[in-house]
């Protein structure tokens, strides 16, 4: 998977480059609008992360130039939380946008959504260690025992299981499980995870649902539990 990052802020560009590389992406970085436009047009990328405020040529003109020739998916990064910028970005052919400050996990989630082309062929049966999930029948078992989950608990488990090994932020979980796309002061996700854990992990070994402090939750098999 090849990503072009067009970003002039050095620290932002550096952490994005490192983070995405570690996520398994091949990353190119352009430090201004002109380089960005050149690279976006000359080379093939699976997705482009494009900052709006750039020296040389701004993000909109890069997008404009790109869309005249290519349909590479683009995520715009806007520093100002202005509807104008977002509407303008989407109208001119951006596929998604993120408002700074954004979380890195959020960016990864959006990138995956844009590049995960054929989710239709997804398996209906998921298996992690002794956990078995039937997405169609909406049922789950551990060690052969049926887990008695409510609808929301199952939705949470399914969301985590589909992205096994990926850290899901609370915001992403709220969006996937409750279709809520705003920040709120509630600790709904914590409560839901606690409930799921009591049914999924408390009676069984190994522990599958892990908390990553400050980031979110991940469903995976670990050598030993690192839960805080």
């Amino acid at each position: 998977m090849k990503v072009l990052i067009v970003e002039d802020e050095p620290k932002t560009a550096d952490y994005l480059e490192r983070g995405l590389r570690e996520q398994g992406y091949v990353v190119d970085v352009a430090r201004d609008g002109l380089d960005g436009k050149h690279m976006a047009l000359e080379y093939e990328y699976d997705v482009i992360v494009l900052d709006v405020m750039l020296p040389g040529t701004d993000g909109f003109s890069v997008l404009h130039a790109l869309r005249e020739r290519k349909q590479t998916p683009v995520i715009m990064l806007t520093a100002r939380d202005r509807v104008d910028d977002r509407v303008r970005g989407l109208r001119e052919g951006a596929d998604d946008y993120l408002v700074k400050p954004f979380s890195f996990l959020e960016l990864v989630a959006r990138l995956q959504a844009l590049t995960r082309r054929s989710r239709g062929q997804e398996a209906m049966q998921l298996r992690i260690a002794d956990l078995q999930i039937d997405l169609l029948a909406r049922k789950a078992w551990r060690n052969g025992q049926r887990l008695d989950l409510t609808a929301k608990e199952f939705a949470l488990l399914a969301a985590l299981a589909r992205r096994k090994g990926e850290i899901l932020s609370k915001t992403t979980i709220a969006e996937l499980v409750w279709d809520v796309n705003f920040d709120s002061d509630t600790n709904v996700v914590e409560v839901a995870v606690k409930r799921l854990r009591s049914k999924l992990d408390d009676p069984f070994r190994p522990t599958l649902l892990h908390t990553v402090r400050g980031m979110g939750y991940v469903l995976e098999v670990r050598e030993q539990s690192e839960d805080a």
Partner: peptide, 26 residues
């Protein structure tokens, strides 16, 4: 790791405040 996690929590809090402030400014 523990320190970084703790930092991240505070940073997330900062981000949430800034985002809400931007929303209110709108």
């Amino acid at each position: 790791k523990e320190a970084l996690h703790s930092n991240l929590e505070d940073l997330e809090r900062l981000r949430a405040i800034v985002n809400d402030m931007l929303f209110l400014a709108r």
